[in-house]
């Protein structure tokens, strides 16, 4: 008995989703992470106020910025799926959403760890950016939940696209409402990039972190895109191949007069699953 693999269906011998581009992206990303660790832990100076906690911004700020980039891509991909029926853009939306949810989770996690020594608390309900990011995270978790529902890929894409757009449409309202709701002064500092209080090497390390995490995001998105693309081809390829195979078997059965009976085991037919029940009955 032979087993059909994704590579058989797609007609390619390649194993995995790697390519020369992803190999170099991954390698550069890996080296970048090592350099970032060295810069962050050994080269960059400690902050006068935040002491060593400031080193968290080398991860926190890049992943927070890239979270919004990823979710913007999801919104754009969702619109283009609904408008143009572009499978490519739908796959981009899915890949960006998955990577974005991971980055958003990292943003909340690293922010909480940083908040404890800096603010004296892991979580502050009066902070606008914190609460808005949490609600965005929950909406996008819902997006992924919809993607995991049963149904054909086009239907799932449409359902998820609506969620992707609802998330994008509602985020300004969430942000505004949380701003008003926050009766206390926000604990979140102003943008680290624009307040001009960072040391040169600290700023450089943070920007370097942004470049490294951008490369890693791109690397992950390309792999996720290819996995999703192959999954779609496998599911659609399986269906169309199964239909062609069944039709061919039916033609053979009719031509040879061997309807049902002897031919059934060759078809791998399961009696309880329907199939050629009517033909068999008519024998």
């Amino acid at each position: 008995m032979t087993t059909t693999t994704a590579s058989d269906i797609t007609g390619t011998r390649r194993r995995g989703t790697g390519s020369r581009t992803t190999f170099w992206l991954g390698s550069v990303g890996l080296v970048g992470v090592v350099v970032l660790i060295l810069l962050g832990f050994f080269a960059a100076p400690a902050d006068d106020d935040q002491v060593d906690a400031v080193r968290m911004i080398f991860i926190h700020v890049p992943v927070a910025m890239l979270t919004y980039v990823a979710f913007s891509l999801t919104a754009v991909g969702s619109v283009l799926w609904l408008w143009k029926r572009s499978i490519w853009w739908d796959t981009v939306a899915l890949s960006a959403a998955e990577v974005g949810v991971m980055f958003c989770g990292l943003t909340l996690f690293t922010g909480s760890i940083w908040g404890r020594p800096t603010w004296g608390t892991y979580w502050d309900w009066g902070d606008v950016r914190l609460v808005t990011t949490m609600i965005l995270f929950l909406i996008m978790v819902g997006y992924l939940a919809v993607r995991s529902l049963d149904g054909d890929s086009a239907t799932l894409a449409t359902r998820a696209a609506v969620i992707g757009i609802i998330g994008a449409v509602n985020i300004p309202i969430v942000n505004r409402s949380v701003t008003w709701w926050s009766s206390r002064r926000t604990l979140h500092q102003k943008s680290s990039l624009t307040d001009g209080n960072l040391e040169d090497l600290t700023l450089f390390t943070m920007m370097f972190g942004l470049v490294v995490f951008s490369i890693l995001m791109l690397w992950m998105m390309i792999h996720r895109f290819r996995i999703s693309w192959l999954e779609r081809q496998v599911s659609e390829g399986n269906l169309s191949e199964a239909l062609i195979a069944r039709r061919a078997e039916a033609m053979v059965a009719v031509e040879t007069g061997r309807v049902g009976g002897a031919i059934q085991p060759e078809l791998g037919r399961q009696p309880d699953k329907g199939g050629f029940g009517e033909v068999e009955d008519s024998k």
Binding site: I135, L138, I139, V141, G142, A145, V146, L149, I163, I166, G167, N170, I173, V174, R176, S177
Partner: peptide
């Protein structure tokens, strides 16, 4: 699935 989708959207 519905509460997961609906409640965050209704936060405002």
């Amino acid at each position: 699935v519905l509460p997961i989708l609906l409640l965050p959207v209704l936060a405002p």
